[in-house]
Write a protein that binds this DNA or RNA. Structure first.
Lengths: 241, 241
DNA sequence: TCGCATCCCTGGTGTAGACCAGACCAAGAC
DNA sequence: GTCTTGGTCTGGTCTACACCAGGGATGCGA
């Protein structure tokens, strides 16, 4: 036939992007189902999916397991070099933050962690895991390692709100240097489940080592952010004093 | 039949990951073609592709347009807060760096740029674009905007090697603060072509604003890195003096 | 009114096959 | 020796279809 014109995934991308940019679809709005999109745009589900995945890679839309596709809300701005708490800076940006503790444990140190943290091979660490989110949507996973030898009794403290506050107030520790290590990777199946993301979802891994005035490692922190929810801002000031 | 056992993309991922981790496939090695992989592992090309895309998302492998899939070489460590040059820090890590200028132009400022850079609406900027790579593989695109009003004659300088050096030596400017803005996104088709990546490839966007001692913006820099080639390291020192 | 079973819709993941276009190489023409 | 041509390999993209499993609303029964 002469009218043989295949609809490409790029056309679908463009169509959906327009809907979002023109405000026909607002943040958190649900997109039509894959089957409906493919019918309406006269293509197949596979092609529609290709397009949806492209927009997902851009961070424009996200999917919630078997519930559908949604328009991504605006990103959270985060400066990992400052020791402000999540709850505060997220609220300051107009979101409603939440934090869920997944587990707290006293663990033996591993050789990898000992090297990373410059700790002795027989130290015990306190490991704290949590998920944090905004407006009911999980945005990142966090694992914090603290050295009991430097912070006696830390295991029994309530770390629910902010570890930084406990360190500065209860232990009178100052943060002298912060080392950041930022990589893009993919979530494991377990991590993805906790963030309601598909396995292999693109994430931003922020590893942070905070030292006190003596140069000892106070805190080793690993964060795994949904890539579509994060905007990293770092301000470096080279001026003295 | 009873032997009806479908091979999942996860099994393919695991198989290939093992090959890479055990060293059967070395960095820069070519993987078997999609058709061969799907035959050998008794599955379809679509499933094999699903697996390859997963490994691509993790940064373990990459594809070169219609040439095949390859094992990703190790990442480049980069500290965007320091003003070391690409050529130097990449060479120091054992790579052979290269840099290609794509264009240099004197342009009128846009309102968006003026706002970003705190510049007057009638200033002219010098826009410099280049691709940079290591060991023959392009890893990032860069666009630099410089203010002619602050840096008279900058257009005629050779900026081939390092803009930082020219600013500090020829103009005696000091870098007081650096603002970093880091986001994960997707490459446009044009950007992707320059990096030999597929359209929509996940990239790390690093936007950097550097100011001089007076607080004036010296340089506005946008970098688009292949996500599989970059490891960001930032060291923040809160100690005075 | 509350709790639970059911059913429909949604995305998740396979199968099978087709055609296109760029990269690459080797054989042939000049 | 160099340029051109054509065949073959590769990924890129599409059609068409099938079945699975979780989410969520609905409705029935206690």
């Amino acid at each position: 036939m002469s009218g043989r014109k295949t609809v490409t995934s790029l056309q679908v991308v463009e169509y959906l992007r327009n809907c979002i940019e023109h405000g026909d679809l607002q943040p958190e709005d649900k997109l039509p189902s894959e089957r409906v999109i493919s019918e309406q745009l006269q293509t197949t589900r596979v092609t529609a999916r290709e397009a949806l995945k492209q927009l997902e890679a851009e961070g424009a839309i996200y999917r919630s397991n078997r519930r559908g596709w949604f328009v991504t809300p605006r990103r959270i701005n985060y400066d990992p070099s400052r020791s402000t708490f999540f709850m505060d800076y997220v609220a300051a940006q107009g979101f409603t933050p939440y934090s869920t503790e997944l587990g707290k444990a006293r663990i033996g140190i591993t050789s990898r962690l000992a090297r990373k943290m410059g700790a002795a091979s027989d130290e015990t660490l306190v490991k704290l895991e949590r998920v944090r989110g905004a407006n009911g949507r999980a945005v990142y996973l966090e694992t914090i390692y603290l050295r009991e030898s430097l912070l006696p009794g830390i295991y029994d403290k309530s770390l629910e709100r902010s570890v930084s506050t406990v360190l500065t107030h209860d232990y009178e520790q100052a943060f002298s240097t912060v080392e950041l290590d930022i990589t893009v990777g993919a979530l494991t199946a377990e991590q993805a489940a906790l963030l309601d993301a598909p396995a292999g979802y693109t994430c931003i891994c922020v590893h942070r080592i905070t030292r006190n005035a003596d140069g000892d490692v106070l805190e080793y922190d690993r964060e795994y952010w949904r890539h579509d929810s994060l905007n990293l801002n770092v301000l470096i000031d080279n001026r003295k004093g």
